[in-house]
Amino acid sequence: MKRVIFFSLLCCILLAFLVQAGSCTTATINVVKNPSFEEGLNDWEYYLECSVVEDANAPDGNKVLKITLHPDYREKVYLCGDLLSHAFSSEEWQEEQIDISDYRGRLCYLQFKTLANVWIKQKIYIPNDADYLIFYHRRSGTNYFYLDYVRVLTTRDYEEIQDPSFEYEIGNNPDVCWSEYEEVDASSYSTTVTTSTEYAKYGSKSLKLSASISDGNYVLIGVRQKIELTDEDYLKFWLYIPSDAVNEAYIGVAIDNVTVWARSVKTQTWEEFAVNVRGYTGVHDVMFFAYAKNASSSSVEGYIDFVHFGEVNPVTIEGYVYDALTGLPVEGCNITATQSGGSYEATSGSDGYYN
């Protein structure tokens, strides 16, 4: 009996460990920032007659949004410019749930409006698994409309790269999707970061990045996503650079804001490259970017497609190996190396060198 109890206890401990370990890479995320207005009107854009007030009966927290109502214009909800719902009548807090599955993969405004010039809105990315817009609302006669706990939920598994072929719009939350990132220290420059149909290796689109500068220090434009790198060997991607970069400019890859790979020379066609991510554990910020530094004007343009994890096949390169006794190279010997983003890492015969 003791053995059975011990075995059952061991199984429970192991199961608890696995559940806890899994929770590190999966999270439920609300893409709406400051959804319950506990931080006032932060993260929201608004115009006229919008305020945050305390409410002891608030569905979430103790603050809610208060918007002035007008008799001739009923409250309305818009997403991506489309009217989703209107004319709420409950005097008590009521939860509303609206299907938004048709808007997946889009970056646009969620807006609540009570008059043409009385509104509050926030730009959000609609995740590919999002089903509903959910929020609480109530009225106070014909005078005020109250709003609280606005949600668009997604379940993110950080082990899966979201939108690897850039078929959807660039978002604004790296925990959820590819999101735009920019650094500028220049007065005369131009940048591009967008999904494009000009060139594509997989699907119908790719990521287009370009940066140019003629006055200033530098400009950097790119996209970021938080990705689990534990137990992965190589982060691979396809790249097309139509022409050589001008002066000090390149297309690069950064992990946690540290550049780990870069290229400025054109590719003849789409080429696959790999970044060694061995040794990284946990979730990291991965960025693809275009960079240009002012050196009598600099510019670069490139296209990224199909970001994924994978292996790199070893290749055998003819070269020389040193004889340990004579110290002279031995002709005709082979050295095995692994290709990694245009360079090679020796995996055997490392006591020699190759051409």
Rank of each mutant, 00 (worst) to 15 (best):
K205D: 00
V219Q: 03
Y234A: 13
K201F: 07
G222F: 08
S214H: 15
I241N: 05
L229R: 03
E228L: 04
R224F: 05
Y234H: 13
V223L: 06
Y202W: 06
W238A: 12
D244H: 14
D244K: 10
I241F: 06
V223R: 07
S210Y: 02
Y218R: 04
V223Q: 10
G222I: 07
N217Q: 00
L207R: 11
N217Y: 01
Y218E: 00
Y240R: 05
E228C: 11
K205T: 10
S243P: 04
I227W: 03
T230W: 12
A249C: 02
S214L: 08
K226G: 08
G222Q: 01
V219M: 03
I241P: 06
A249E: 01
N247R: 15
K208C: 14
R224C: 11
G222V: 06
Q225W: 00
Q225G: 11
I241V: 14
L207G: 09
E232C: 15
A249P: 05
K208T: 10
S212I: 02
L220K: 13
S214D: 14
S214A: 12
L235W: 06
E248Q: 04
V223F: 04
V246D: 15
W238F: 15
T230R: 14
T230Q: 12
K201D: 02
T230Y: 13
S243A: 06
G222E: 04
K205W: 04
S204A: 07
A249D: 08
S243C: 08
A211G: 02
L239C: 14
D231T: 15
F237V: 11
N247E: 08
I227P: 06
D231K: 15
V223P: 02
L207D: 06
L209K: 10
G203S: 13
V223G: 04
L209R: 06
I227Y: 09
E232I: 15
D233K: 15
Y202M: 05
K236C: 13
I227A: 01
N247I: 09
Y218L: 03
D215E: 12
W238K: 15
V219P: 03
K205N: 11
F237C: 14
E248P: 00
D233R: 15
G216V: 06
R224Q: 11
D233P: 13
K201S: 02
I213C: 01
K236Y: 14
D215T: 11
S210M: 04
K226N: 05
Y234L: 11
A249F: 02
F237D: 09
A245Q: 07
E248R: 08
I213S: 00
Y240P: 02
G222N: 09
D215Y: 13
S210P: 00
A200W: 01
A200G: 02
T230M: 13
Y202L: 02
S204C: 00
G222Y: 06
D244I: 09
K236T: 12
E228P: 05
E232F: 13
D233Y: 09
L209C: 12
F237M: 08
K201Q: 04
P242E: 01
K236I: 08
D215S: 10
T230H: 13
S204Y: 03
